[in-house]
Structure formats: C-alpha cells, structure tokens
C-alpha cells in the first residue's frame, strides 16, 4: 500500500474516531457525573443517604462495567436501532460507546467526589446551604481537577473501545489497524495507525494533565504571572502554609 492510498483512509479514520469518541465522552460525562455524585450522596452517612438507591445504582454500574465492550455492543443492538435507526456506522457505535463509558466515568467521579473534605460540606451546611448548593459549590468545584483527570482517562479508554466499533462498520483508527494491518497483512498501515493512536492519546493525556494540574495548583504560585511578582516584590514571599 502506498502513502497516497493510505492517507485518505487515515484521514477519514481520524475523523471517525474523533467523532465517535467526542460524542460518547460528552454523553458519558453528562450521564456519569450525576450518577457518580448520586453514588456518593446516597451512600451511608451521605447527604441523601438511601441504601436501596445506592445498592441499585452500584449494582447496575458493576454489571455494566463487567461486560466486555464487544458483548455490550451486541447486547445493545436493538436499543441502538431504536435510538439511531441503524445498527451500523459511526452513529450506531456512539450508543454502546457512551453506555459503556457512563458507568466507568461514574465510578471515577465517585472516587473523586469522595475525596472532598467533609468539613467543607459541613461549612456550607452551617451557612444554610442545601444539598444542591453543596453539590454545586463544593463537591464539583473542589473535585474539578480529579474530575478532569477522570474525563481524560475515560477518553483514552473510549479510544481503545472504539477499535472494536469497527465490527459494526463504524471505522476509526483502531478499525483500520485491525482490518488493513492485521487481516490484510499490511504491516506498514498497522504501524502507522498505532503511531497515530499513540500521538493522539499522548496529546489528550498531556492536555488533560495540564488542565488538571493548573486547576489543582490554583494560587500556589506557579500560575501567577511573573509580571505581578516583579511589580510587587515584597508580598511575593508567600508565607509557608501551615495546615495543609
């Protein structure tokens, strides 16, 4: 296979992957975030403690996560047809991808939100805030760096899943590697695809880490513009933090 033959294939595959992963990530975040928060709130000692709801959601999440993606995709076929009107193609792949990623992301959200210091929740309650205020003003903003890391991990996992989406004719980078590289012995094509995937995943991981870190380090000096330090040299010596 020559480069001129490969190039349009690769280009199309890149767009397909981005399209599938982009949409399914969006849906996974929209679905998984409330689910994860709900898992924390309904847990024992949570603000909305409800053992039944907690156990039911927890079990659903566990079952969904224990299913191999390819099985999930097949199992969801009729549901996919009901949503998108078809079971093949990129749109059809988004449905199982999103549904597979929701419980995955929800568990990560749960872990991230659980890390938030209970004292902060108590402080907002003492101010007269209700549960919704606690979620909006404390749980989400305080766990935002972890949530961004979780979303990054979810994207990477989704790119991996999307390789299997080729089985429903959805295309994408993984699919090309399997179909051309593995099944047709086009080793060159395979390695190029793997290379592109490596670059894409590294870039996403890098961007995610950067965003998470800059949020987590808010106010710890590194993000303060140098100019300001120059103009006011005296207070630049930040007192060492004692308690944290």
């Amino acid at each position: 296979m020559t480069w001129s033959e490969m190039q349009p294939l690769l280009e199309q595959a890149c767009w397909d992957t981005l399209y599938m992963v982009g949409w399914s990530t969006l849906i996974a975040v929209v679905g998984g975030l409330p689910l994860g928060v709900l898992l924390v709130l309904t847990d024992r000692g949570g603000l909305l403690q409800n053992t039944v709801v907690n156990k039911v959601i927890g079990q659903i999440v566990n079952i969904a996560r224990s299913m191999p993606f390819i099985i999930l995709m097949v199992a969801l076929m009729s549901f996919t047809r009901w949503i998108t009107g078809t079971t093949i193609g990129v749109e059809a792949a988004i449905v199982p991808l999103a549904i597979g990623a929701i419980p995955f992301f929800a568990r990560l959200v749960e872990t991230a939100v659980r890390e938030v210091d209970h004292g902060l929740v108590e402080a907002v309650q003492a101010m007269g805030g209700n549960t919704w205020t606690v979620v909006r003003k404390v749980l989400i903003p305080e766990s935002l760096p972890s949530l961004i890391s979780s979303a990054t991990t979810t994207i990477v996992v989704l790119i991996g899943y999307s390789a299997m989406a080729g089985t429903v004719g959805a295309g994408g980078l993984g699919d090309i590697a399997v179909r051309y590289g593995y099944q047709r012995f086009e080793t060159g094509m395979m390695w190029i695809t793997v290379g592109v995937l490596a670059v894409v995943i590294s870039a996403i991981q890098f961007a995610g880490d950067l965003a998470a870190r800059s949020l987590a380090r808010r106010g710890r000096g590194s993000t303060v513009p140098k100019l300001r330090l120059l103009r006011t040299p005296a207070p630049a010596a930040v007192e060492p933090t004692k308690a944290s």
């Binding site: 210091d117 004292g119 902060l120 108590e122 402080a123 309650q125 003492a126 101010m127 007269g128 003003k137 404390v138 903003p141 305080e142 935002l144 949020l215 808010r218 106010g219 308690a243």
Partner: peptide, 17 residues
C-alpha cells in the same frame, strides 16, 4: 436559621477552588 449563626472551624474549611 443556620444562615444567621456563624461558624468557624478548626481546619478552617475554606474552598481551595
């Protein structure tokens, strides 16, 4: 009623964000 009662904490409980 709580909003009319101020409270301060041992570990300050300020939002880092």
């Amino acid at each position: 009623a709580r909003s009319r009662i101020g409270m301060v904490f041992q570990h300050f409980n300020l939002l880092s964000s």
